[in-house]
Write a protein that binds this DNA or RNA. Structure first.
Lengths: 125, 125
DNA sequence: GTCGTTGCTTGCAATATGCAAGTAACAAAG
DNA sequence: CTTTGTTACTTGCATATTGCAAGCAACGAC
């Protein structure tokens, strides 16, 4: 069965399978990546802002996840200052497209984890 | 800030934060768990059925994830035969509640991973 | 010259993942 | 009675990932 799919279109090859969920999880399936997306959606954009979320992500993990999100086209890294060079991370349209996914997770999570609460957007500087 | 939350209601303590997304990811945030949920939604229920999905999950990982899903109340393990004892896994109502999450992931995934396709439900035996 | 800020990198220990083989409890077949 | 097959796992071990904590570079402020 998977043989057929592989020969069906050899321009399309998927790491694990042709299921959309599988492919999404190849990028987002860990404990931190969607939290980084959450923070970017909430308006955080700088490294220290992302580091300071209550979950206290490790710095090397944050750097790793941002790099992967950039490579996947969900995030762009752009300088907001030149000397010294300082960067902010912004969601692309593709990344913004994950809002309904976060929304669905929030809906299910609020129902099954009483007492949880959605974090507020950050004030723009 | 997190101090306040911690003292606010010490009956409610969360592993990493009080965000619903964080808590959901504590259970579901890896590459395999939502795929197991997907297969159960599609009607698979036995261990070999789950093992045989195209992604070829490792047996020890599948066993580990099913145990965790059972502990989290998303799945029940029940015997469908006594001698020898043989088990099937079924989603609970809580587990079924993840369908919108999978739906949102599929919607985003199909848009951004062209060529992916939703797997069909399995025929009931 | 020193200190602070920002965005990382690095070394290393702990934990998770996954390969491949193995196990147990049965029934069926010979 | 023995062998084989099925099913649902467990186990040992190598590899990969995670995360702690310290460190680094490039600036400006003092």
């Amino acid at each position: 069965m998977t043989d057929d799919l592989e020969t069906m279109d050899d321009k399309l090859t998927f790491a694990r399978s042709c299921c959309p969920i599988t492919n999404v999880l190849d990028t987002l399936g860990d404990k931190w990546t969607l939290l980084v997306i959450r923070d970017l959606v909430l308006g955080k954009s700088r490294y220290q802002e992302l580091l300071s979320s209550p979950e206290r992500i490790a710095s090397n993990i944050l750097a790793d996840r941002l790099k992967k999100l950039e490579a996947a086209g969900l995030v762009i890294r752009q300088a907001y200052q030149q000397k010294p060079a300082r960067y902010e991370y912004l969601l692309t349209e593709k990344g913004e497209g994950l809002k309904p996914v976060l929304g669905a997770i929030v809906a299910w999570g609020q129902e099954h984890y009483p007492g949880t609460m959605v974090f507020p957007a950050v004030e723009r500087r």
